[in-house]
Simulated assay, not measured.
Amino acid sequence: MLPDTALRIPAGSGLPLPAAVRRTLALTRHNTTLLLRDAGPLASRMILPLVFVTLLRPLYTAAQGTGDGTVQAVTGTLVTFSLLALSIVGGSILSERLQHTWERLRSTTAHPLEILGGKALPILAALLAQQALVLGFGAAFLGLRIDHPALLAAALLCWTTTLLGLGSALGVAARSYGGLSAAYDIGGMLLSSLGGALVPLAALPHWVRAVAPASPGYWASAALRAALSGEGARTAQCCAVLLAFALGFGALAGWKLHRTSVRSARM
């Protein structure tokens, strides 16, 4: 729990940063410390994808050829394990709720947007690091070609923003760690499978291909493949859909948090 005194601005500090920025940075440092203090979940989300992609790449290349198979293995692994990393996003919010520190944070001088920003920035960095590690491993050891880094960076940022929104919604809606675990385990595998991350959509039944666009994993996989092949228009289209998902999930999380705060204030 970050005390209110850590959010106050000392008189005569001489720092040129606005008050809101300084409070957000203080919260960011605090949440980064909490994230690193219990680094087990983060480490597993970093290491397991590398094992997974190494073991599955021969299967994909045998079926699709070296180039397409490598892209499928790397992007599919990235999407699948970044969805499983929702545990980090949702857990950071759920822990505040279960320990009854969320309302204490709300009672400080920090604005709700500053609180959410302070929680989101360390997790954003962790998710981007996970994805960069998978892509870097693919490029260094599996022959993945990254010829359009700007497009790829845009796709990763949009996908990570979607993950933050979805993870926040899960963290707000879950009532226990067990419920959150079931949500990201089942939901993560379902969304990645429906999106064609693990198995190419062409090999799946027709009804799966029909509902696939309802999954954010579908658009994430499509954005990554388009970015790797240099298709700017397709990447932009997929990124726009991902950002729409992010706004929807974020609005749901914000509404739920506001509703919970109003209910608590009336009790």
Rank of each mutant, 00 (worst) to 15 (best):
M1Q: 13
A6E: 10
R8N: 09
I9H: 06
P10C: 03
A11P: 06
G12Y: 01
S13D: 15
L15P: 00
L15V: 12
P18N: 07
P18G: 05
A20Y: 10
V21Y: 14
R29T: 03
H30M: 03
N31C: 01
L34I: 11
L35F: 13
A39T: 01
G40Q: 14
L42V: 14
A43P: 00
M46H: 10
L50S: 10
L56H: 03
P58V: 14
P58L: 12
L59Y: 15
Y60T: 11
T61A: 15
A62R: 11
T66W: 09
T66K: 12
T66N: 13
G67Q: 14
G69Y: 07
G69L: 10
T70C: 11
V71E: 13
Q72A: 14
T77W: 09
T80P: 05
F81C: 06
A85V: 01
I88P: 08
G91E: 06
S92M: 10
I93E: 03
I93G: 00
I93C: 00
L94E: 06
E96G: 08
E103L: 13
R104G: 05
S107K: 02
A110R: 02
A110M: 04
A110C: 06
H111F: 04
L113A: 15
E114R: 02
L116R: 01
G117S: 07
K119L: 14
K119S: 11
L121Q: 04
I123W: 02
A126R: 06
L128K: 02
A129D: 08
A129N: 05
A129E: 04
Q130T: 04
Q130K: 06
Q131H: 02
A132T: 01
L133H: 05
G136V: 04
G136F: 09
G138N: 06
F141E: 12
L142G: 02
G143Y: 04
G143V: 07
I146Q: 07
P149A: 08
L151T: 04
L152M: 04
A153F: 09
L156C: 14
L157C: 13
W159R: 04
W159P: 05
L164A: 09
L166P: 07
S168L: 00
S168V: 00
A173F: 05
A173R: 11
S181G: 08
A182H: 01
A183T: 10
I186L: 15
G188Q: 09
M189A: 15
S193Q: 02
L194S: 10
A197W: 04
V199F: 08
P200Y: 05
L201P: 05
L204H: 01
P205I: 07
H206W: 12
W207E: 03
A212V: 11
A214G: 12
P216F: 01
P216N: 03
G217T: 09
Y218D: 08
A223Y: 02
A227D: 04
G230T: 06
G230E: 08
G232T: 14
A236C: 05
Q237R: 13
C238K: 00
L243Y: 02
F245E: 10
L247S: 13
G254A: 15
W255A: 14
W255H: 07
L257F: 01
H258N: 07
T260E: 15
V262K: 13
M267L: 14
